[in-house]
Amino acid sequence: MMRVWRATINTWHGLKFAIRSEQAVREELAALVLAVPAAWLIGATPARRVELVAVVALVIVVELLNTAIEKLADRLTTEHDPQIGRVKDMGSAAVGVALAIAGLLWLFALGERVGLF
């Protein structure tokens, strides 16, 4: 039980740090807050509503991982390193792909709601 408690504390500390240090995390959390009522309006079924909220949460997960990669890379060296630059670019690409997936799902759900599909 102590391990679960420590993991919870570490999670809370990580979220607090990410919220304080990363504008993208703050923006994506705001999107999550907006996604809950929007999913209720747009989602045609309970399962679709959960999917819409979950895909926004997925974007936050990917952003947190990207932030961790960037913070670690910055800690390794302050000098320009092409390999580290490529790693950071891949993390950014992962966020971009997650955002594209989220956007497509939301567009599909909207089309579903208005009767296009």
Rank of each mutant, 00 (worst) to 15 (best):
A44K: 07
G103N: 12
G115Y: 09
G43W: 03
K88L: 03
E27K: 10
M2E: 14
G96T: 11
G85N: 15
L15G: 03
R3P: 06
S21N: 11
R113A: 09
L110P: 01
V50P: 00
F117N: 05
L105N: 03
V50K: 06
A30Q: 13
V36Q: 04
A73R: 06
L29R: 04
L110T: 09
E70S: 04
L65V: 15
V25E: 02
N66P: 00
I101R: 11
A73Q: 07
G85Q: 04
L58H: 15
V25Y: 01
G91E: 02
E51R: 15
A44E: 06
T67D: 12
L65E: 09
A35S: 13
H13E: 15
A73D: 06
L32M: 15
D81H: 12
S92L: 14
T11E: 13
V97K: 11
E22I: 05
A44Q: 10
E112N: 15
T77P: 00
G103R: 08
W5V: 15
G111T: 03
D81K: 02
I9S: 04
V95E: 09
A47E: 10
A24I: 14
P37M: 01
V53L: 07
I60W: 03
A44P: 01
V56R: 08
V97F: 10
A31T: 09
L110E: 03
A94C: 06
A39D: 01
T77W: 08
T67V: 10
L110R: 00
R6N: 12
L52H: 07
A38M: 13
A100N: 05
T11N: 14
V97S: 06
R86Y: 07
V62N: 02
W12R: 12
P46N: 03
V55Q: 01
L72E: 09
V50R: 13
T8C: 15
L104I: 11
G43N: 01
P82A: 11
A100K: 12
A39R: 01
G14D: 14
V97C: 07
L15R: 08
G96I: 05
V4H: 14
E27F: 11
V97D: 08
L34V: 03
G91T: 06
V59K: 00
V114S: 01
A57Q: 01
A44W: 02
Q83M: 10
L52R: 05
A7G: 12
L64E: 00
L29P: 02
I19P: 00
L32Y: 08
T45Q: 07
M1R: 05
G85W: 04
V62M: 05
L32R: 04
R26F: 03
V59L: 07
G96V: 02
M1P: 06
V61T: 12
V25L: 09
A38D: 02
R49E: 01
L116D: 11
A47F: 10
L65Y: 04
V4Y: 14
A35E: 00
L65M: 09
G91Q: 08
T67P: 01
L29E: 03
V59R: 06
V56P: 00
W40V: 09
G103C: 05
E63I: 09
I19T: 11
W106H: 04
W106F: 13
G85V: 07
